[in-house]
């Protein structure tokens, strides 16, 4: 089974969707139950180890989920091998940068 096998990508998309669904549900419930009063409270919430880890995991899994989705669109519609490879690489690089940027923001929030 290759890294980009059909089954692995298909399963990855579904598992990440389950986590993302649970995270969004719990995050909304938490924010409704205990809305942060100010910026300091918001930072405190994000810096809480459980929230921090759950959010970091959410970001990584959401990007993986989106990667499989965009990969599917590219595999469906882009016929030229060179263009397909370029599109896949571009999406991968952009997602990697977005992930690192989001994680950096989380780390900064935790260190304050």
């Amino acid at each position: 089974m290759s890294v980009l096998s059909g089954q692995r990508a298909w399963l990855l998309q579904r598992i990440t969707a389950i986590y993302a669904g649970l995270y969004v549900f719990l995050a909304v419930a938490l924010l409704l139950a205990r809305p942060p009063a100010d910026h300091a409270a918001w930072l405190g919430l994000i810096a809480h180890p459980v929230v921090w880890l759950a959010t970091a995991t959410f970001i990584v899994l959401m990007l993986l989920h989106a990667w499989v989705g965009l990969r599917d669109v590219i595999l469906d519609y882009v016929r030229s091998f060179v263009v397909r490879l370029t599109a896949l690489a571009t999406v991968a690089i952009v997602f990697l940068m977005l992930g690192l940027w989001a994680l950096w923001i989380l780390i900064e929030a935790a260190l304050r």
Partner: peptide, 14 residues
């Protein structure tokens, strides 16, 4: 099953 487990043969079905 192994023959079908690639990005195209089976998994292009949406």
């Amino acid at each position: 099953l192994q023959r079908l487990d690639d990005a195209y043969s089976l998994y292009r079905c949406h």
